[in-house]
């Protein structure tokens, strides 16, 4: 058949580009920056995490050592907090995704015909950023305090136990995390969905896929870069967050996350090795998680 005639016209891999000294030279400031502001603190953190208490030292005095038991000790002491951090962050990320996706889809796809509405909604998504994160969280704490209108109404409607609380509960912390990080989910989702070529959706519908299947088999996979970016931008800071879970904000003694433990160890207990070891554990778990996640989500082609 005639097809054979043009079957050879395949995409060829690009020839490797010639290395340029100038390019390397231009990279230098970036590398220096990374060494100075990323590598240095990292090395410092690792060294601190291995310190041992000074033999005759006072509180907060440690010496460089190879005291790897610090890691065992913090895991033993704070395993519930470690699990809680990732648990809360996961739930908050899933909730943020569930709230954000329809919103981002509406702004990015459905509202394309009305650019004014699109911009207005984007502004509304970003608007909370204009007010300090702390103030917003404190405002929620007030809005949902025991004697607030919302809580007393819920109690009056028997939707909440008469002696129930909102602040200081895991629910409050997850609520805070979800609320505070939702824009970080919505914006990457929006930027992917905004570029979503609806012709693919029409093609799917043309190929006998109903609306749900089109969404599942085409829209979701094509918006995967946004989902991955959004979930990472939400999950990573949420796992390390210490504001929402803090007792001063939405948390209570039984909702403390790793960030709070690190803060207490660093500031109050002056136990710098424990704080450093926890930070490294947090970082390592997140790195592993991100690695596996990016690999499993199969977005290499789309990223």
């Amino acid at each position: 058949m005639a097809f054979a005639a043009f079957a050879t016209a395949e995409a060829l891999p690009q020839a490797p580009k010639r290395r340029s000294r100038i390019a390397l030279f231009l990279l230098l400031p970036g590398i220096l920056y990374l060494v100075l502001f990323f590598l240095t603190p990292l090395v410092s953190l690792v060294l601190t995490s291995l310190q041992a208490p000074s033999e005759f030292g006072d509180i907060g005095q440690y010496d460089y050592a190879f005291n790897w038991q610090n890691y065992v000790a913090v895991v033993e002491a704070y395993l519930p907090h470690i699990l809680r951090s990732f648990g809360y962050a996961l739930v908050a990320t899933v909730l943020a995704l569930l709230f954000s996706y329809p919103l981002a889809y509406f702004i990015g796809v459905k509202a394309r015909r009305w650019p004014l509405l699109q911009s207005l909604m984007l502004v509304l998504v970003i608007a909370p950023f204009f007010i300090s994160f702390l103030l917003r969280t404190l405002a929620w704490k007030q809005i949902l305090s025991d004697e607030s209108f919302i809580i007393t109404s819920l109690k009056a409607l028997s939707l909440m136990a008469p002696d129930g609380h909102f602040t200081g509960t895991p629910f409050a912390v997850i609520f805070g995390l979800t609320y505070n990080f939702i824009p970080f989910m919505t914006l990457p989702l929006y930027s992917t969905l905004e570029r979503l070529d609806t012709r693919y959706l029409e093609a799917g519908s043309d190929l006998y896929a109903n609306a749900f299947t089109v969404f599942r088999k085409i829209t979701i996979p094509l918006s995967m870069p946004g989902i991955v970016a959004g979930t990472l931008l939400t999950f990573i800071p949420a796992a390390g967050d210490y504001i929402n879970a803090s007792r001063d904000f939405l948390g209570g003694p039984d909702t403390q996350m790793m960030g709070n433990v690190i803060e207490a160890n660093f500031l109050v207990l002056q136990n710098y090795p424990a704080a450093a070891a926890l930070s490294i554990i947090l970082m390592a778990v997140i790195l592993v998680f991100v690695g596996v996640y990016v690999k499993r989500s199969g977005t290499e082609d789309l990223l």
Partner: peptide, 26 residues
């Protein structure tokens, strides 16, 4: 000795040591 062992010889670690001296008692 310990500091050297842990220091990994990286130039950066010298900076790190200076920046983060938790100090000993004496």
């Amino acid at each position: 000795r310990r500091a050297l062992l842990a220091g990994a010889g990286a130039g950066a670690s010298a900076l790190a040591l200076a920046a983060c001296s938790t100090g000993s008692g004496e």
